[in-house]
């Protein structure tokens, strides 16, 4: 089904995009004012001998000209070497992976459920557009989404954790983890509040796009024709409307899945859930360049991968796009 040459061109293009993206982030990060060593040394003492300071710069390779650092960096990542975090002295990749795993505990179910719920409700709402139920749902969704997510989170923590004490105040697990190891249900109990919140948030966004897409499809001639032919309403919904309305969702949802790599710093802050989002802001304030580069690199990989997948999926589902040459 898929044109080999198109695929090849697309992959080659992704590689180029990745390279450019990595280069841009490298230089932006290295041009950032301030550096880790100054911050760190200032926190230790104001009276450091000059040669000591110079030695630190040399140790971290920061005394070389930027282009040389850049070449070394590119050479290293091509070899799969992501470097070592300045502040922890640990390899960047495992460090990111550990935090990412915790972020995914919340975000993976949230995004998956959010996409499914959003699409189902959106399709239903779009199909029934104009009806009372649709309007009620639509308005509810607008109101829900208009309220900032960190405010929802604060309120949820206040009501459910502080006042009612139904849920824990934060953290990954209860203290029993130290004796009996990680209990998945216990982790789920700790994660359930943020998962529910994130799910609703993702769902409202998808709901809105799906509803619009559905409304647009319903207005198309072929649906009108199909309906006019006297076909069963459900048959039209399943075979024509839904399939076409889902097309714009493919790109959107693949991006959402790729986007979870950055975590959600608001949710992580409020729910005391130190994941990749907090790691990023912390690395930023510490100017931990290798760690930051690692996070940006991983994100670029994921997003470019997602774009590739989305393109291939869409062209598979809708051959017209490929023919159009776009």
């Amino acid at each position: 089904m898929i044109d080999g040459q198109y695929l090849l061109r697309r992959i080659g293009y992704s590689g180029a995009a990745f390279f450019v993206c990595v280069s841009i982030t490298f230089f932006i990060l290295h041009l950032m004012p301030g550096d880790y060593i100054t911050n760190y040394l200032l926190s230790l003492s104001n009276t450091l001998p000059k040669e000591v300071v110079a030695q630190f710069y040399q140790q971290y390779g920061l005394d070389r000209p930027p282009w040389e650092q850049y070449l070394i960096y590119i050479y290293n990542i091509l070899q799969g070497q992501w470097g070592y975090s300045y502040q922890y002295g640990l390899p960047v990749f495992p460090l990111i992976m550990e935090k990412l795993t915790w972020s995914l505990v919340i975000l993976l179910p949230a995004v998956l459920f959010g996409i499914i719920i959003g699409i189902v409700l959106g399709a239903w709402s779009g199909w029934r557009s104009g009806g009372k139920k649709d309007l009620a749902l639509f308005n509810f969704m607008i109101v829900f989404r208009a309220i900032p997510e960190f405010w929802w989170a604060i309120m949820a923590v206040w009501v459910f954790a502080f006042s009612l004490q139904w849920f824990p105040l934060g953290g990954f697990s209860s203290i029993s983890v130290l004796d009996s190891g990680l209990d998945p249900w216990d982790v789920l109990y700790h994660a359930i509040l943020p998962i529910c919140l994130m799910t609703s948030f993702v769902a409202t966004g998808n709901y809105y796009v799906m509803r619009n897409s559905m409304i647009a499809v319903i207005g198309e001639d072929y649906i009108t024709t199909a309906r006019a032919k006297g076909l069963d309403e459900h048959a039209v919904l399943w075979n024509h409307a839904l399939k076409n309305a889902l097309l714009p969702m493919v790109t959107m949802t693949t991006f959402q899945v790729a986007g979870i790599i950055m975590g959600n710093v608001f949710i992580e802050t409020v729910f005391s859930w130190p994941g990749i989002g907090l790691l990023t802001t912390e690395a930023l304030t510490m100017r931990d360049l290798p760690l930051l580069e690692g996070i940006f690199l991983l994100d670029a990989l994921m997003t470019i991968g997602a774009m590739l997948v989305a393109d291939i999926l869409v062209s598979y589902l809708d051959p017209r796009i490929r023919m159009g040459g776009q």
Partner: peptide
């Protein structure tokens, strides 16, 4: 090419300038 760069951290990075 610019799209894959994560906006939120990039925003924070750029504000430091």
């Amino acid at each position: 090419v610019l799209m894959p760069i994560p906006i939120f951290p990039l925003l924070i990075v750029l504000t430091t300038f």
